[in-house]
Design a binder for these strands. Structure first.
Length: 447
RNA sequence: UGGGGCGUGGUCCAACUGGUAGGACACCUCACUGUUAAUGAGGAUGGUGAAGGUUCGAAUCCUUCCGCCCCAGCCA
């Protein structure tokens, strides 16, 4: 694509319109850039505009003596005004990024009025202000880099799943009742006084589709009306949820391991510039390759006790416990065989030790918490029905789910990967709210 | 929902034991041909989250309310 454009330019003598990330391929050539004015520095009769176009930023240079017309248009131009720039790309050590554009012509598409300057400065701001300005905040280089890394994480994840023979499918957003019955659901008014709920997981539906297509995965938003106010929680977040027929516990853990390492390696390979923008210490990401350490729940309890944590069998692990366990390893760690009592109703008990569930969590390093939760699912009709009753769930609502155990039931497994937590960890962001374009949190639905 | 913290110009902060609310950035003008969140000089704008109380006097102390942040729980 780049080559073709270059050839066209050379043959016809027309200037190529390029993106800033391509600038290095056009050293010495006259090009057109379409973007925005990110910043403007001035030194006498020399202007140093910084342009951005969504792919990166590049410094421009404009001298009064050489280009009086462009100089006059550019001088005093306000931050974030949209511009089309013509000029010659050249390697320049003094320019950030190594290349700059010598501006010969500038067309102002829209000038930001001086009376209402762009609210986000290059200096520091508070979180609340930035979130109120989220629609503009995403223009800044750091936020743009994070969103590009998010896109790469999704691309790498989907490529991996497809290559493993999993078929992309979709679960509904409107559901008639709780999937797991535990978390709080968002209730919505459906047609004609009916109530519906926003999904908190596509898993149960993915199980049904897995019985139709074999190996499947869903990828979409999920909603939790929990009153969680930590840096790891959103009320709307995206999950990738594989579900596979005839796949048992060991195999599904290995799939999770492959998925996470593929995402990390994909970002390292294809978004190194963005990681650099974020000043992310990539040495911590480089060894995120299989195999990941695996530790049983019981061994994890022992490990915690050795580190002075009073956890005992039957306790669920909180943030403190996760941090102690994950800091013992240099890559994500899988904790498996949790007590049945603290896990969801649909999880298959271990054949030898039924008090333990074939369930696992993957904990990200550096305190980013659980990024995967998964299990082998109960495939026996009677056991599933018993568990539904034990968890006091309405049997009627789960008739279709029970049907899956009535018509050719097979062992099957799956998990959910939390996209935002994964991306937050890869980016090393302070808060999960930075890794989704418009975060939805307990007290924020604007903008 | 508990525990802790914070609310001061558009933004980021300062203001002693209660004593005239201030600085920087942003905006405008001028100077400067290699700036790196440029720098220097000048200018205009504009604020104590809300209500009540104590006091000669409240950003500061008290009460209530509102908003936000962090942690826990729940979870991805």
């Amino acid at each position: 694509m780049e080559l073709r454009k270059m050839n066209v330019a050379n043959e016809t003598g027309q200037m190529p319109a390029i993106t800033i990330e391509q600038a290095g391929n056009y050293d010495g050539q006259e090009v057109i850039l379409k973007g925005w004015l990110y910043n403007l520095r001035q030194s006498g009769k020399l202007l140093f505009p910084i342009f951005r176009d969504g792919t990166g930023i590049i410094q421009g240079v404009c001298a009064l003596k050489e280009n009086p017309e462009a100089f006059q248009s550019l001088k005093g131009l306000t931050q974030e005004s949209s511009v089309i720039v013509t000029g010659k790309i050249r390697a320049e050590k003094r320019a950030p990024g190594g290349y700059e554009i010598g501006v010969s012509k500038i067309q102002i598409v829209q000038k930001v009025p001086e009376s209402t300057p762009f609210p986000i400065q290059l200096k520091e701001h508070g979180v609340d202000f930035l979130l109120d300005q989220r629609h503009l905040w995403i223009r800044t280089p750091r936020q743009a880099a994070i969103l590009r890394i998010r896109a790469e994480a999704i691309r790498a994840a989907r490529e991996f799943m497809d290559a493993q023979g999993y078929t992309l499918t979709d679960a509904p957003m409107f559901t008639p009742a709780a999937c797991e019955g535990t978390s709080t659901l968002f209730e919505v008014n459906y047609i004609d006084d009916q109530k519906a709920y926003l999904t908190q997981s596509g898993q149960l539906y993915a199980e049904a589709i897995a019985m139709a297509l074999g190996k499947v995965y869903t990828f979409g938003p999920t909603f939790r009306a929990e009153r969680s106010k930590t840096r790891r929680h959103l009320t709307e977040f995206w999950m990738l949820e594989p579900e596979a027929a005839y796949v048992e516990f060991e195999e599904i853990m290995t799939l999770g391991e492959g998925l996470v390492s593929t995402i990390v390696q994909g970002v390292l390979k294809n978004k190194s510039r963005e990681l650099e923008t974020l000043k992310r210490d990539t040495t911590k990401l480089e060894h995120v390759k299989p195999p990941f350490p695996r530790i049983s729940y019981e061994d994890a309890v022992s490990l915690l006790n050795k580190n002075g944590n009073p956890a005992k069998f039957g306790d669920d692990f909180g943030g403190d416990e996760e941090t102690i366990i994950s800091s013992s390893f240099d890559r994500p760690v899988l904790i498996h065989h949790y007590p049945t009592s603290i896990k969801a109703f649909y999880m298959q008990p271990d054949a030898q030790r039924p008090e333990l569930a074939l369930a696992f969590d993957m904990i990200a390093p550096e305190g980013y918490g659980e990024i995967i939760g998964g299990s082998q699912r109960i495939h026996d009709y009677d056991l599933l029905l018993k568990r539904l009753h034990e968890h006091k769930l309405p049997e009627e609502a789960f008739q279709w789910y029970l049907d899956l155990r009535r018509y050719g039931s097979v062992p099957h497994s799956g998990f959910g990967l939390g996209l935002e937590r994964t991306v937050a960890w890869i980016c090393g962001t302070e808060h999960i709210r930075e890794v989704i374009p418009f975060p939805r949190m307990i007290y924020r639905v604007y903008p």
